[in-house]
Simulated assay, not measured.
Amino acid sequence: MSLINTEVKPFKATAFKEGKFIDVTEADLRGKWSVVFFYPADFTFVCPTELEDLAENYETFKKLGVEIYSVSTDTHFSHKAWHDSSPAISKIKYTMVGDPTGTITRNFGVMIEEAGLADRGTFVVDPDGKIQIVEITAGGIGRDAQELLRKIKAAQYVHSHPGEVCPAAWKEGAETLAPSLDLVGKI
């Protein structure tokens, strides 16, 4: 079942953010755009490259009004230890959510049950708490923050411009489409 346009299910978790442990719930995703970024595990190989890429682009996400929540089935203690020991992960200023029970991971449908780990799932949540973008990739395929930023800009544009849609490879400032009978068969 697709999660597009569904509300984020309730959860409560402890996270590591900027040297502190904080509580995070689904309510924290409301009122702003959010990225919920699942990855398999701390202290691995592809994961730190993705999380570092997000960290290096975090200011751009914030300028767009987007908060990032990285999530794995590790604990918030593990996130802190990784943050303190890895040059790549030490760059992170966004929220690193621990999900040792797998509740959040299962809520988003990305739990690899036999491993107790999350798939590489990226979810963009609008200010109403509804999921607008879902991307799941195989474990060996790292994601790209720049491509995610492009998709978020398109989602934000469509959200604030009812009746318009963004065509393939749309970039901010490019023309959009207004679906109508006149366009059928002409594109």
Rank of each mutant, 00 (worst) to 15 (best):
W170G: 11
V125W: 04
D128T: 12
L177Y: 02
D119I: 01
Y94M: 14
T176C: 05
W170E: 00
R143V: 07
G139K: 00
E113K: 09
E147N: 14
F108Q: 03
I152V: 14
E172Y: 05
Y94N: 14
G116F: 10
R150C: 04
G142V: 08
N107I: 09
G142L: 02
I89G: 13
K130F: 01
A155N: 00
I104C: 08
G140W: 13
A168I: 11
L117V: 14
P167A: 15
K151H: 08
G129F: 02
G139A: 08
T105G: 07
T103C: 01
Q132I: 09
I152H: 00
G173L: 04
V165D: 01
G129E: 06
T176K: 00
T103W: 06
G142W: 11
N107H: 02
D126H: 00
T103L: 11
P100Y: 06
G116I: 12
V158A: 12
K151F: 05
T176I: 03
G98P: 10
T101V: 04
I112R: 12
G116R: 08
I112M: 15
G139L: 15
T105F: 10
P162C: 01
G173H: 04
L117Q: 08
P162S: 07
T122I: 10
P167M: 12
G140T: 10
A118C: 14
E175G: 09
A145R: 01
K130C: 08
A174D: 15
A169W: 02
R106C: 01
R150V: 11
A115D: 09
P127W: 13
H159G: 03
D128A: 15
V110R: 06
I136L: 13
N107M: 10
Q132H: 00
P162I: 00
P162D: 05
